[in-house]
Computed example of a mutant assay.
Amino acid sequence: MSLEQLLAHQQVWRGFKTQNLPKKSSGYPELDELLQGGFPAQGVTALHTQPAVGELRLLMPQLQQQQRLWILINPPALPNAEFFAQHGIGNHQLLVLRPNSAKETLWATEQCLLSGSSHVLLWQQGMNVAQLKRLQLACQHGDSRLFAFYPPHDSQFSLPFDLQLELQAHPQGLQVTVLKRRGGWPGQSRLIHFARHWPELTQQQASQVIPFPQEKVG
């Protein structure tokens, strides 16, 4: 395949165009700085994380900003409706799907993204390049976004996601590391502080000031 053909199929990164990629603010200034503006405005983002470390809290500003339906496909547990309601997200804005097979899961994900009326949170163990490409095309046609959750150190590292992040629990929130980013370099990391939003879930930092001993008088 010639260089012109590779460029036409967006198989080569052209550095001078990296700043033109549309982004959506993540809702966290430190994460926006790490991602040079926020999450991709459309496309597939992979999140490698242990369950229940705050991954949905990280995405909460995304769920709050959008007027579309958010579809949760194969979540590991039943979503807490009260938690979402406390953040202004009603049951009518969420839909949970549990397809019967991996094939049906990918089909349902593609149809939801193509609809133009929803975004998707997906928990799926396996995906190949051809399947990912189909989902990316569906995001383009539907102007939609897909956040796919995987365990840490999963074999999906080799897939050409639009953005690939690793999340690690931290006493103050989440440590986010860029594993792969279209139009950017991997390896950068930031601590995303949750204390401003959920102080009850963060560990109070001990004072680093050592008091000077007072001399007794008399």
Rank of each mutant, 00 (worst) to 15 (best):
L63V: 03
T49A: 15
Q62T: 00
T49N: 09
S101I: 06
P76G: 07
P61H: 04
N74P: 03
Q64I: 03
Q62G: 01
R98L: 01
A102I: 05
S101V: 05
V96E: 13
Q93S: 09
Q66N: 10
L63I: 06
P61I: 05
L47P: 04
T105Y: 06
N80H: 14
L47K: 05
I89S: 14
A102F: 07
T105F: 05
N74Y: 03
G88Q: 12
A77C: 05
Q67Y: 02
A77S: 06
V96F: 08
R57I: 02
G90T: 03
T105P: 02
S101T: 08
L59M: 13
L95S: 12
P61L: 04
N91E: 12
R68W: 07
P99W: 08
Q50L: 15
G54M: 04
Q66G: 11
R57T: 07
I73V: 15
K103C: 02
Q50I: 01
L58G: 01
L78K: 11
E82G: 07
G88H: 12
P99F: 09
P75Y: 11
L59C: 13
L58F: 02
P61G: 03
Q50M: 13
Q86D: 15
L78E: 12
M60G: 01
P51N: 12
A52D: 15
P79N: 09
A81V: 10
H48R: 07
I89K: 15
L47A: 06
T49Y: 00
P99L: 08
G90K: 08
G88P: 07
P79G: 06
L63M: 15
I89E: 15
N100I: 05
R57E: 04
Q62S: 10
P61Y: 02
I89H: 15
L72F: 14
M60N: 02
T49M: 08
E82C: 05
Q65P: 00
A81P: 06
Q50T: 07
R68Y: 01
Q86W: 14
L58Y: 04
E82K: 05
L59D: 05
